Simulated assay, not measured.
Amino acid sequence: MPPRPVETLPKVQSHLHLTGAMRPATLDELATRHGIAVPPLAALTGGPYEWAVFQGRYDAARAAIRTPDDVARVVREAAEDDAAGGCGWSELQVDPTSYAPAFGGLEAAVEAVLAAAAAAPLPMGVIVASSWARSGEHATTLARLAARYAGDGVVGFGLSNDERLGRVEDFAPAFRVAADAGLLRTPHGGFFTGAAHVRACVEMLGATRVGHGTSAAADPAVLAQLAERGVALELCPASYPPFGVHALDELPVRTLLAAGVPVAIGSDDPLLFAVGLAGQYALCRDALGLTDGELAALARGSITSSAAPAALKRTMLAGVDAWLSD
């Protein structure tokens, strides 16, 4: 039997950043419209690269998003791209800090993203994120902002950027605010750091998902903790080879699944890694040899660990079963 098409497998987009969701043509058009010089942003392949290479490209692209109309276009197109890949619910992560000067403040930046998500052609939730490179106090400010919009489209609070730039304990107050508001807690961790960092994100920050977290596969005790608590790891296969973190065929997906850890697949930054959501599933099949049953397990993990409404989750999970039975 030929492999089932990954584009028709119902799934959730669990890990996607606003700027990184831009289509290359949209970036070119917005940069031209606003008179901003953006260097060529060829896909990050080869390497390994230092994190600063990625961050420099990301920052250059972010400068092209200047107005609520720009946000609306980026979000709409990202939703269209995810829907074409079989996505039924998308969670878009945004750190409003760098957008605030152009938008008139943190609140205005968040509200622009929320308005765009509400109008998108795909059900979406917004994850407000701080940065490992900023202070714990700043993160608490953003967590309070996220809590204010809980129920109005904000579904989670996260920490993005290079996790080596901050101390986990400094961000515990911010994540307590998020927990009190009933938000998903989704810090990046275990990308450059070891399994102990993933454990710290769970124990100190109360993480309900961890962005990346692949280093957890090296520690059976951490795997057991993640499985026991139902903490999902958000894996983005195309994001690791450019930094020398994992070769595609070394990504420990089977180790995680065998340990009972929920795994959700995301596309991270398609603008820079040139792979969308369905393409990430295809990489899991082609590079790791995952079966349709294992791909379905990834899709289920993305659905059950998401903030999608319960009825939508049931519909998508039934769709996964139907995909397998076709």
Rank of each mutant, 00 (worst) to 15 (best):
residue 75 V to D: 02
residue 124 M to A: 10
residue 24 P to T: 06
residue 110 V to K: 00
residue 194 G to K: 01
residue 313 K to I: 12
residue 313 K to T: 13
residue 135 S to V: 08
residue 14 S to C: 13
residue 110 V to Y: 00
residue 125 G to K: 06
residue 115 A to V: 07
residue 286 D to E: 15
residue 111 E to L: 13
residue 9 L to K: 04
residue 323 W to P: 11
residue 25 A to N: 06
residue 249 D to K: 01
residue 118 A to K: 07
residue 89 W to M: 07
residue 136 G to V: 06
residue 188 H to R: 04
residue 42 A to N: 07
residue 29 E to K: 12
residue 122 L to R: 12
residue 142 L to W: 05
residue 80 E to H: 01
residue 183 L to Y: 03
residue 147 A to G: 07
residue 162 D to S: 01
residue 283 L to A: 08
residue 214 T to Y: 04
residue 285 R to Y: 09
residue 302 S to Y: 10
residue 290 L to D: 15
residue 5 P to S: 13
residue 126 V to G: 02
residue 205 L to K: 11
residue 189 G to N: 00
residue 170 D to L: 01
residue 232 A to D: 07
residue 161 N to Q: 15
residue 43 A to C: 07
residue 152 D to I: 00
residue 201 C to T: 12
residue 153 G to K: 00
residue 11 K to Q: 14
residue 237 P to Y: 03
residue 274 A to I: 08
residue 201 C to A: 15
residue 201 C to P: 12
residue 90 S to M: 15
residue 200 A to P: 12
residue 15 H to M: 06
residue 94 V to F: 01
residue 25 A to E: 15
residue 23 R to G: 14
residue 170 D to T: 10
residue 53 V to S: 02
residue 97 T to C: 07
residue 40 P to V: 06
residue 154 V to A: 01
residue 171 F to G: 06
residue 228 E to L: 15
residue 7 E to I: 02
residue 217 A to I: 04
residue 69 D to I: 00
residue 8 T to I: 07
residue 131 S to A: 13
residue 259 A to W: 13
residue 323 W to C: 06
residue 57 R to A: 11
residue 253 V to Q: 08
residue 308 A to E: 04
residue 138 H to R: 13
residue 307 A to H: 01
residue 29 E to S: 15
residue 227 A to T: 13
residue 89 W to N: 05
residue 153 G to D: 02
residue 90 S to C: 14
residue 17 H to P: 13
residue 315 T to Q: 15
residue 178 A to K: 02
residue 121 P to D: 12
residue 108 A to S: 13
residue 21 A to E: 09
residue 267 S to K: 01
residue 315 T to G: 01
residue 43 A to W: 05
residue 281 Y to M: 09
residue 290 L to F: 12
residue 288 L to D: 14
residue 142 L to E: 11
residue 129 A to E: 15
residue 151 G to P: 00
residue 297 A to R: 14
residue 87 C to E: 10
residue 35 G to E: 04
residue 42 A to W: 03
residue 271 L to I: 09
residue 151 G to D: 00
